[in-house]
Design a binder for these strands. Sequence first.
DNA 1: ACCTGAACACCGTTCAAGT
DNA 2: ACCTGAACACCGTTCAAGT
Lengths: 200, 200
Amino acid sequence: MSSETGRTRPYHHGDLRRALIDTALQILQEEQNWEFTLRELARRAGVSHAAPYKHFADKRELLAEVAAVGFRALRQAMEAAAAGHEGEPEELLAVLGETYVAFALESPARFRLMFGPVRDDEPPVPALQSAAGEAFEALRAAGAGSGGGEVDTRTLAAWSLVHGLATLLIDRRIPGAPSDTAGTRALVARIIRASVRAPA
Amino acid sequence: MSSETGRTRPYHHGDLRRALIDTALQILQEEQNWEFTLRELARRAGVSHAAPYKHFADKRELLAEVAAVGFRALRQAMEAAAAGHEGEPEELLAVLGETYVAFALESPARFRLMFGPVRDDEPPVPALQSAAGEAFEALRAAGAGSGGGEVDTRTLAAWSLVHGLATLLIDRRIPGAPSDTAGTRALVARIIRASVRAPA
DNA sequence: ACCTGAACACCGTTCAAGT
DNA sequence: ACCTGAACACCGTTCAAGT
C-alpha cells in the first residue's frame, strides 16, 4: 500500500533496498505465510534474483530488516494507544494488550515473521535487536515500573498472556473461537480485562 | 532414544512408517529448528529419498503425524502431573501450566513443530486434529469446568499465558531472562502462580 | 556503483523400473 | 508390496560479466 504496483518498474535505479522491504511487507499482507521466496520477492520488485545480494548479506538479513520495520510499527501502535491513559495503570496495560493482539490479527504473516524462531548459531541483526527492544520497552513502561534491567513479574505475565493469545488466535488453535472480527475482539477484551486485575 | 542408531539398517523391511516418525523425533531433539529436510530424514533412516512417499502423501502429512505424537506426549505429561491434585483447582491449573512450559523447554523444536503455522488452504490431518484436541481437553478439564463446547475465559487465559511464556522463552525473546534451567523454572513458577489467582 | 545470466549444490515430488 | 534411481521444477547463493 506504500508503493505503486501499477507501474512496471517504479525504481530500478532508485532505492532497491527500500523497495525490497516494501515489497516484502506487501507480500506479507497478502499471504498468511511468511515463508515467501527470495526469488519471488525479486520477481515482484522487477529485478533479477541476484540483485538483492547487493543490499543484504543473505535472505535471513533481509527478513530481519523486514521484521525490524514490523517492530517499529508495533511500537508506534502501542504508543498511540497509550496516549491518554497515563493515570490509570491497569487500564493502560489492558489497552496495550488489546493493541498487541489487534496488531497480530491485522497482519498474521508479519507477526509470525517478527517472532519467527531465531537460531542462536546465527549472528544477530542489530536493527532487529534494537527495534524489538524498543517495542518491548513500550510495554514495560506500562507495567509495574520496576525500572531496572530485569523484567518484573506483572509485565512478563501480561506480555505472555497477549503473546500467547495472539499466537493461538492467528494459528486457529482455539476450538470454538469466533471467526468474525467483532467476536474475536470481544473475546480478547474479556480475557485481558479478567487477567489484568491479577495481583503481581 | 526409542530406536537404536548403532545398527546400520535397523528396519528397511520392518515398519518404515514408524521408523521415519521416530527418526524425525530424534532430529527434533538434537536440533533447535524443526525445519529438517525430508531427504535428510530419509538418509538418516537409511532409505532412498523417495521411500517416504510410500507411507505419507507428502512432507506436510509426515510432519503432522510427528506433531500428533508430540501432542499425545504433552497430554500424557499433563495427566501425570494432574494426578493427586483433584481437590485443589488453582494448584492443579498451576501445575498443568508448569508442565506445559517445561514440555516446551525440554524439546523446543518439537514444540515449534506442534504449533507450527497451519495454513487454511491445506487439508487437515485427522490424527493431528484429535491429538491436539485431546491435549487441550486435559487443560480444559482443570479450568472452571464450564462443560460446554465453548472455552471459558479462565481456561483460555491460563492457556494463553503458558503458551506465550513458553514461546517467548524458547525463542529467547525475554531480555534478562535467566539462561539456566533452575532460574527459568523459578521464573515460570513465579509468573504462573501470580496469575492463577486472577478472577475469571 | 549497481545489476544480469549462467552456474552450483541443494530441495520436494513424481515415476518408471527393479526385487 | 515396498523400495530405488533418474528426472523435473524449483530454491538460496556465488560470480564473472555487463552497463
